[in-house]
Design a protein around this nucleic acid. Structure first.
Length: 267
DNA sequence: CCCAACTCCTGGGCGC
DNA sequence: TGCGCCCAGGAGTTGG
């Protein structure tokens, strides 16, 4: 599932391909999740940003196309017209230069929105998202205070996007494993919070370096796969030995999300 | 405000 | 081999 490292990989590829280019025509699947695609016909891309798991495609008319990839969303380019017989084509934008950008999404968990630039009031998760992992204002104390404000499990809090933006199920399990913290804890001290924040930065940074994690669906904007799946220590490794202590990793559903952790060294 | 439950989707893995 | 069941999951929505 595309999390911050996957979305950042795509952002970096999209930027040189989109900046300065105009949308000549656009179309979409009839679902309201995708119809906003049509609203940017005639506009020109002027920025390609990211916030958490959201792609922010700035337009020269002071609006933004906000893209969330959901579970299986992909962005790809093809010469000429859209491939309108592709069964999972949800939106497309015909660009100048005889090329089409396509949004492919088998499971339709993705969504598109067009908003006034920087105005995310109608996208609550984006509007209330916590800082980016490398935001200099994100201190250990701030992260700890955010975690202390809720009584939910640490795992659930990481997925909430509030303490830090961009964490999904894979990198949450990886960060908790690296920081040696039990995902079902409901409170942690400042020292553990600091270690968890360090771990989030480490696993996210590694994910970006590796071009994202491809378990099944994820592809970058060039159609390529990531390599981070070979570096996972927890996610998908239930029943296999912990890479730190050898204990067999356990799996359990926490808040409807499968969670893998080591009962011996994650306390 | 917080939180829990429910919802959306369908490819693929599995049991038989 | 084929059928049918059910899981995976981010975030939006709803209701307490």
């Amino acid at each position: 599932m595309p999390e911050l490292p996957e979305v950042e990989t795509i952002r970096r590829q999209l930027r040189p391909r989109l900046l300065g280019r105009s949308v000549l025509e656009a179309g979409s699947h009839p679902s309201s999740k995708f119809t906003p695609a049509r609203a940017i016909t005639g506009a020109r891309f002027s920025e390609v940003g990211r916030r958490g798991k959201y792609l922010l495609l700035g337009l020269d008319d002071d609006r933004e196309l906000v893209v969330h990839l959901g579970m299986t969303g992909r962005v790809q380019f093809r010469p000429g017209a859209p491939d309108d017989i592709h069964p999972h084509l949800r939106a497309w934008w015909q660009l100048d230069g005889d090329e089409t950008m396509e949004f492919i999404d088998a499971r339709r968990f993705g969504r598109l929105r067009v908003v006034p630039a920087g105005d995310y009031r109608t996208i609550p998760t984006l509007a209330t998202a916590g800082p980016e992992p490398w935001d200099p204002d994100l201190t250990d104390e701030r992260f700890w205070n955010s975690l202390r404000a809720s009584r939910r499990t640490i795992k659930t809090q990481l997925l909430s996007q509030r303490p830090v933006a961009g964490v999904g199920n894979i990198y949450a399990d990886e960060a908790l494993w690296l920081a040696e913290i039990n995902p079902v804890r409901r409170s942690i001290g400042l020292d553990r919070a600091g270690r968890l924040l360090d771990a989030v930065r480490t696993v996210m940074g590694q994910g970006i370096e590796m071009g994202g994690t491809t378990l099944r669906d994820y592809r970058d904007a060039d159609g390529g796969s990531g390599e981070n799946q070979h570096g996972l220590a927890a996610y998908g490794r239930a029943g296999q030995p912990c890479l730190r202590c050898g204990e067999l990793l356990r799996s359990r559903v926490i808040d409807a999300r499968s969670t893998v952790w080591c009962v011996a060294c994650q306390r």
